[in-house]
Design a protein around this nucleic acid. Sequence first.
DNA 1: AATTGTGAACACCTTCACAGCT
DNA 2: AGCTGTGAAGGTGTTCACAATT
Lengths: 214, 214
Amino acid sequence: MSSPRKVSDSTVRRLSFYLRILKEIRGRGVRTVSSARLAESTGVTSAQVRKDLSAFGNFGVRGRGYDVNELGDHIRRILGLNRTWKTVVVGAGRLGGALTSSGDFSRQGFRILALFDTDPAKIGQTVGPATVRPLEELDGFVREEGVQIGIITTPGEHAQDAADLLIAAGVRGILNFAPDRLRVPEPVRLRDVNLAVELEGLTFAITEIGEPGG
Amino acid sequence: MSSPRKVSDSTVRRLSFYLRILKEIRGRGVRTVSSARLAESTGVTSAQVRKDLSAFGNFGVRGRGYDVNELGDHIRRILGLNRTWKTVVVGAGRLGGALTSSGDFSRQGFRILALFDTDPAKIGQTVGPATVRPLEELDGFVREEGVQIGIITTPGEHAQDAADLLIAAGVRGILNFAPDRLRVPEPVRLRDVNLAVELEGLTFAITEIGEPGG
DNA sequence: AATTGTGAACACCTTCACAGCT
DNA sequence: AGCTGTGAAGGTGTTCACAATT
């Protein structure tokens, strides 16, 4: 019930997984689920599941488990998914276009209202549910619409400028796909998705296999 | 020099960041760098930098620091970037297309040789340096070309099938963008990029700000 | 004087194991 | 009997602080 003191990033990531499993389970008409069942589907221990959930409240019933619908509602509320998030994308390249068109974002209350770019050839194009606008309009648009989240898919050298614009206009969180480390002031929240890091983590792991220590 | 017993995922991720900074520093003609300088640019402590590097060898010189070129070479070798990685993408949708065209992959020794899809309308299309082929050709192609890495950008319900095909054909690592948790046998390595998890981590962090515990 | 490499201390996260509830 | 919630134990990753080296 009470607000947690500090919740680890790992816990939050696992909540997303639990939510996904709960949706699947609910689709099959099951009404109750145990921590062991959730653990099995997500690749963690049952104790981990219970610890993660108990950071936010006592959602289960001893001897019985968790109510699938109820737990889903709790997790959605915890993750802030019980509302709509107004979002814009800066950088109308292929990645920005792919994300805008993708179901990942339009699902679950994320609404991409516009893309912004400096390339005159792209201005006015329609991408999924949104239109590409000139970067100069970003500030006014974000302020007027009350946009809370900015997604950066510009080339690395323009990512910090994009972040500065978004922050000045009032966004509260940034999802950054550019490989540069951005500086954002409190209380703006930043999350990075760095494809090079993921690929290199993979090649490291593969390379290790054949080595003596592996 | 010797193989490390066990290196944490966090350490590997930071190596990618160090490498990025080293490239930038080298571009400016600087020849030596301290752990403090690397730390400043990547947002960690200098002790962390030294610990990360010392897991793989003694690359520095006391009182002086690290040679920029030499350290870059070491990290590239550690991450397996001192060679070419043959890669295919399964799922020629917008995301698959964006990744294939993106510089992130063509840089640094990653060569995307083909995309695979079941949609007849997409077969034969050219995406960046590669062509879209029918899924039936995946096994033969991967075997013949000696492809080591598969990137999955299919819808979630087809991701496990894609993984099974890739593994049967002999890939050693998979980068999965589908939101489903894949099962892969040893010694195949799997890495997930889950956009929903990242977005939900961001909304959690934003939502927390206004709360009592924050 | 500057800076690395690293044992020890610390902080954080995960697992164990069981009391407590249904 | 079954399963949660959680204090304690265990394990992993980070920071401290300083001897070693140039």
